[in-house]
């Protein structure tokens, strides 16, 4: 074997090893890297079997602190929409954190637990204990403008609590943590049809023939006014308004 042939064999072998191994490394992180630049895009999910209520996903680009002042969200606190390019570490924050930061935490699969200014001390202590127990999952911060004492948020999901309910908070955290990380990470397993995408205007399927109680439940889960949901003969489901 000549020196030139041997050299080419070494080159091809080395390049192949590097390409395969480095390529594998990059592919595994590709979604995180690209999403870190652009923000994330994913279809809506209703998933009525999950805790809380689905909230339609807004376009969610990464924007500057100046640009976020003009952002409009579809819930308070928001569960998707324009947010900062950097994230915040999970943990307990004694002061309010900007929506743009909380949203990025949700985009990474974290649960953001907001509490109103007037929350009782025992409830706050209980929330802090839970934040310590789920220290890799929860961002706990005050949100002074809340109308309910405690609001749990995950990406495109919200639950409002009138007081601390350990079971409800724990369920929300356990079922929704890591469900989204720059995209849906797993199926919701809510049964046939329950995971279908929300359309705009939102349409909730599989309720043909439902009684008034079902329609009321659907309205509550989606944060719509009770009575605004009715059967939709055209689509054999039910729709809002």
């Amino acid at each position: 074997m000549t020196g030139t042939v041997r050299r080419w064999l070494w080159r091809v072998g080395t390049a192949t090893c590097l390409a395969v191994l480095l390529g594998t490394s990059f592919v595994s992180q590709w979604r995180l890297i690209t999403a870190s630049v652009t923000g994330s895009v994913a279809p809506d999910r209703v998933s009525s079997c999950l805790p809380g209520t689905a909230v339609p996903i807004l376009p969610s680009p990464h924007v500057s602190q100046a640009a976020i002042a003009s952002a409009r969200y579809n819930s308070t606190p928001p569960t998707s929409g324009p947010h900062f390019p950097f994230v915040i570490a999970p943990g307990i924050y004694p002061d309010p954190i900007p929506d743009g930061l909380a949203l990025h935490a949700m985009e990474h699969g974290h649960i953001v637990v907001h509490y109103a200014a007037g929350i009782s001390t025992p409830d706050l202590e209980a929330l802090r204990r839970l934040a310590k127990r789920y220290s890799r999952d929860i961002v706990l911060a005050p949100y002074p403008s809340l109308s309910t004492p405690i609001v749990l948020t995950a990406w495109a999901r919200i639950d409002r609590l009138t007081g601390f309910d350990e079971s409800r908070v724990t369920t929300f955290v356990q079922r929704l943590r890591g469900r989204y990380n720059h995209g849906w990470t797993r199926p919701d397993d809510c049964g046939p049809g329950a995971g279908s995408a929300l359309a705009a205007p939102p349409v909730v399927p599989v309720c043909a023939g439902s009684d008034a109680a079902d329609l009321g439940r659907i309205a509550r889960e989606n944060g719509w006014p009770v009575g605004s949901v009715g059967c939709c003969p055209e689509c054999a489901g039910c729709c809002r308004g």
Binding site: L32, I33, S36, S64, F84, F86
Partner: peptide, 9 residues
């Protein structure tokens, strides 16, 4: 990931 976020911001 940190550097990209920082660079974008």
């Amino acid at each position: 990931p940190s550097l990209i976020g920082l660079a974008m911001w």
